[in-house]
Design a protein around this nucleic acid. Structure first.
Length: 430
RNA sequence: GGAGAGAUGGCUGAGUGGUCGAAAGCAACGGUUUGCUAAACCGUCGUACGGAAUUAAUUCCGUACCGAGGGUUCGAAUCCCUCUCUCUCCGCCA
């Protein structure tokens, strides 16, 4: 949620920044401003009425003792009248407030000043060229889908039989490679100071509201139980960021760094026909996530640090990658600034997203009531939250198959994975 | 799944309709005392929102908040309803 005070203070600036994401948001912001003005006036009146009621009510007890039942009754009647008037106004006030909250909840975060203006991904900025050698093949490289099926480690047909489209069954070395990747990533991050978690994969609606998946992106979530209003997580960002929701942390505990491996579940509504083959876009996939809670002062530096730590995974795996700064039109809902890491896919001859690292500033913290307090100072401040994939496991799996493929269809296992995987090569195992 | 108990400020814990935003204790903070530490004593000690004053730190006023949401009442931490969570016992289960 954006800060309505900030919006009131610099309406033009914020409205145009939001418009840079999508023009519809500047309209929403103007609407909120107009309604907020009415709301403030109404609230002022109602509060004055409440003050009068409280004052008179308080005196009734005393009045009865001093001047008797009659005087008390007269006073009660006066207050009853105030109460009636007040109830009508309160009704109106509640409707207004709900309306404002609803619109406010659907407005995305304000882009940071360093974010390029642009409508879609064509406006993104390449900020770091690939430094690792792109593998050259003296044969036509196959895609990971074909490689994996031939090796018997990826089985999409059986997954479809069990579940449906956009699922995968990992078998033998495939399952083991996935597990090796997860362990390698977690070990690397915990060595860098992240605290490891194994969070629930089912969360409630209020956690989803906190990180911004609800109410706007409901159609992409698996709703597992409507009675208890619980959903399968679409990313570990949800449980990790909500860990301290509703709490006030001592400033000296910040920053906090969390990592977790979880399966992630997405309906992928609206992506029909996109990446239907392979590991790129599935309903269930594994991801190792990084989450930071920090003070506002250091969150931008932490975004740089966290992105480097995600890059480290790709470097250690020897996968060619580059870093892209997303433009206003391509950024996610909660983010103020996002870097995407893209990894090289030889079969397509292009780089594809494997990690997304975002600074959500106080946007999520405001939604979930996550604050911090400096020792000896009055009042509290909103925490800044950051999240990044460190990295998507399925996509890393796919990139390894493609980049490390041999002419005979076997795969050389990257050196850092060998302690986890136990072998240096994946070969067809008939 | 069944039965019962509970949820109050940073923590412990009192409070069953009228100056209760909430006793008391602990912790914390400021001070007095002290050779130092400790102890003792005095004081301060919630958050959010709105308004007023101040250059500002801040102060004052109002409103809301005693798990959440509704209701009763002139007035609710206190009474009623619904929900959530925690604990104990039984059942079931990896």
């Amino acid at each position: 949620m954006i800060d309505i005070k900030l919006l009131t203070a610099n309406p033009q600036e914020l409205i145009s920044l939001l418009g840079a994401r999508n023009p519809k948001y500047s309209k929403l912001a103007s609407e909120v401003l107009a309604q907020q003005e009415v709301y403030k006036q109404e609230l002022f009146q109602v509060e004055a009425m409440r003050a009068e009621r409280n004052e008179l009510s308080k005196k009734i007890g005393i009045l009865r003792a001093q001047e008797g039942e009659e005087a008390a009754k007269r006073s009660m009647q006066t207050v009853s009248k105030i109460k009636e008037e007040m109830q009508a106004k309160e009704e109106k006030l509640k409707t207004l407030k709900n309306n404002i909250d609803e619109i406010l909840a659907s407005i995305p975060n304000i882009p940071d000043v360093s974010v390029p203006i642009g409508e879609d991904e064509s406006g993104n900025q390449l900020v770091k060229e690939n430094a690792l050698p792109i593998p050259s093949f003296n044969f036509t490289p196959k895609d990971h889908h074909e490689l994996g099926e031939k090796l018997g480690i990826l089985d999409f047909a059986t997954a479809a039989k069990l579940s449906g489209s956009r699922f995968v069954l990992l078998r033998g070395d495939g399952a083991r490679l996935e597990r090796a990747l997860i362990s390698f990533m977690l070990d690397t991050h915990t060595k860098n100071g992240y605290t490891e978690f194994m969070p629930p994969a089912i969360v409630n609606a209020s956690a989803l509201f906190g990180t911004g998946q609800l109410p706007k992106f409901k159609e992409d979530m698996y709703h597992v139980d409507s009675e208890s209003d619980q959903y399968l997580i679409s990313t570990a960002e949800i449980p990790l960021t909500n860990l301290y929701a509703g709490e006030t942390l001592p400033a000296n505990q910040l920053p906090k760094a969390f990592t977790a491996y979880t399966p992630c579940f997405r309906k992928e509504a609206g992506t029909y026909g996109k990446d239907t083959r392979g590991l790129i876009r599935n309903h269930q996939f594994n991801k190792v996530e990084l989450v930071w809670l920090s003070t506002p002062q250091e969150s931008m530096q932490i975004l740089e640090k966290m992105t480097k730590e995600a890059e480290l995974i790709l470097e250690l795996l020897g996968l060619p990658y580059r870093r892209v700064l997303l433009c206003t039109g391509d950024m996610g809902f909660s983010s103020a600034k996002t870097y995407d890491l893209e990894v090289w896919f030889p079969s397509e001859g292009k780089f594809r997203e494997i990690s997304s690292c975002s600074n959500c500033t106080d946007f999520q913290a405001r939604r979930m009531g996550l604050r911090f307090k400096k020792e000896g100072e009055k009042g509290t401040e909103l925490v800044h939250t950051l999240n990044g994939s460190g990295v998507a496991v399925g996509r890393a799996f796919a990139a390894i198959l493609e980049n490390y493929q041999q002419e005979d269809g076997s795969i050389i296992v990257p050196e850092v994975l060998r302690p986890y995987f136990g072998k240096d090569k994946i070969e067809a195992n008939v």
